[in-house]
Design a protein around this nucleic acid. Structure first.
Length: 370
RNA sequence: GGAGAGGUUCCCGAGCGGCCAAAGGGAACAGACUGUAAAUCUGUCGUCAGACGACUUCGGAGGUUCGAAUCCCCCCCUCUCCA
């Protein structure tokens, strides 16, 4: 079981605290993605300096390599990667869509070929729970199918039926209930009636939290916001809601306004490694020629290690040179910024000024810093 | 001094009479990235034009030809080997 306490609401934005065996998480929260047991380019120490409260791991990847049994033998994922704060593992449902080319989805589960060596594997909802219990994250995900976009309503409907069935089976198979919390994943594409059906069915099963999956897969942004807004009054108030795989800073703020508590996304880390940095002034493409002789920090107001010590010109040079340090420094900043943004959002919610906060921030964050 | 090789668009480098504004690579420039097979991918890259297209380029000058980066002549400059 997982305890979630709602502390405040501002418009529909929520601030709360999630209690886990590895400590509390203040929401809204952004969770850096550490797919294979590492937030790329970051040490646990750096993640903590960047105020990361919880990080992600991935069932699919860790099952493939090094193997969930090895991680269990190592004492669990926390110990294996030396991270003592909360963790969450994704179920692998997304990978089934994104990379297992040869896949066959049946009621039983998904038979697919490894992207590594071509070997065949079967993921069932029970197997996915077993793997996640071996990994030992504080929060784990039910196995789902994430339908691609665009697709037909018929497909989404069929897929949803399977995902709901998998949710039932996964929940039944789940035994480590004292140390881990299990979230159900709401699917249903861009169709409100399917989303509602999905949410209601999952709520009947009483999960520890509710994930919203299948968004930010290519649909128009308006559809994403429409769905989270639609789900907001349906999902239970006293359970955390997790919007999977989202997103940009503005996506986060807009979805917080729709009652979402948790996010994860590859964006701050992946983009940072390529020189696209998120700041309070918008997106900074550090490779741009205009930074060649710019000896200011990325953000002179930012207290992160990168901004305290390095210039745009130097970071541009490192990224241009493809130096590891460049990727590390940009990642440190972008993750710090994401955490800071969440802290500001939380503060605004607690002060009941979230609407004003949104009005102030939204116009800036999507722009490219000139 | 003798023998040979070569000078191509920012760089390297292909082309060796028309299909060449000129392959390919690099650099540069501009972007994309949303539950991470990503240190990946895309576009631009002679000038002007929205586009059709026009104009100026292949060391320099002349010539042959309907047509030359490609053939001929002279000149300049690099590199290698021999003395």
């Amino acid at each position: 079981m997982l305890k979630f306490t709602l502390q405040a609401k501002s418009i529909n934005a929520r601030a709360g605290v999630i209690e886990t065996p590895h400590g509390n998480i203040l929401t809204p929260v952004f969770m850096p993605v550490g797919t294979v047991g590492s937030v790329k380019a970051m040490s646990p120490h750096e993640l903590k300096e960047g105020h990361a409260q919880i990080i992600l791991g991935n069932t699919y990847h860790l099952y493939m390599r090094p193997g969930h049994e090895l991680i269990r033998d190592a004492g669990g994922l926390h110990k294996f990667i030396s991270w003592d704060r909360p963790m969450l593992t994704d179920s692998g449902g997304f990978q089934v869509m994104s990379l297992a080319v040869l896949r066959k989805i049946t009621k039983e589960g998904v038979k697919f070929q490894s992207h590594i060596d071509g070997s065949y594997h079967l993921f069932t909802p029970e197997k996915v729970i077993e793997i996640q219990e071996a990994l030992g994250a504080d929060i784990i995900m039910s196995f789902d199918e994430c339908p691609p976009y665009p697709t037909t309503r018929e497909y989404v409907e069929k897929s949803l039926k399977i995902t709901l069935n998998w949710a039932v089976r996964g929940k039944e198979a789940f035994t480590n209930t004292k140390k881990q919390a299990l979230f159900g994943i709401v699917q249903g594409g861009v169709y409100e009636d399917l989303r509602e059906k999905s949410a209601v069915k999952l709520m009947e099963m009483d999960f520890d939290g509710y994930s919203i999956g299948g968004l930010a897969v290519g649909e128009p942004k308006a559809d994403m916001f429409r769905i989270t807004e639609f789900l907001n009054p349906i999902l239970p108030v006293d359970k955390p809601r997790y919007l999977m795989g989202v997103g940009t800073p503005t996506d986060l703020l807009n979805n917080i306004a729709n009652g979402v508590d948790m996010f994860d996304c590859v964006m701050p880390t992946r983009n940072a490694r390529k020189g696209s940095i998120f700041t309070r002034y918008g997106k900074m493409i550090i490779k741009a020629a205009r930074y060649k002789e710019d000896f200011n920090p990325i953000d002179s107001l930012c207290p992160c290690y990168t901004c305290r010590n390095f210039s745009r010109a130097y970071i541009r040079h490192l990224i241009t040179m493809n130096e590891i340090l460049g990727m590390r420094l940009t990642t440190i900043h972008s993750l710090y910024f994401y955490q800071e943004l969440m802290q500001m959002a939380r503060k605004a919610i607690l002060n009941d000024s979230y609407a004003a906060f949104l009005t102030e921030m939204l116009p800036i964050l999507d722009m490219i810093v000139e």
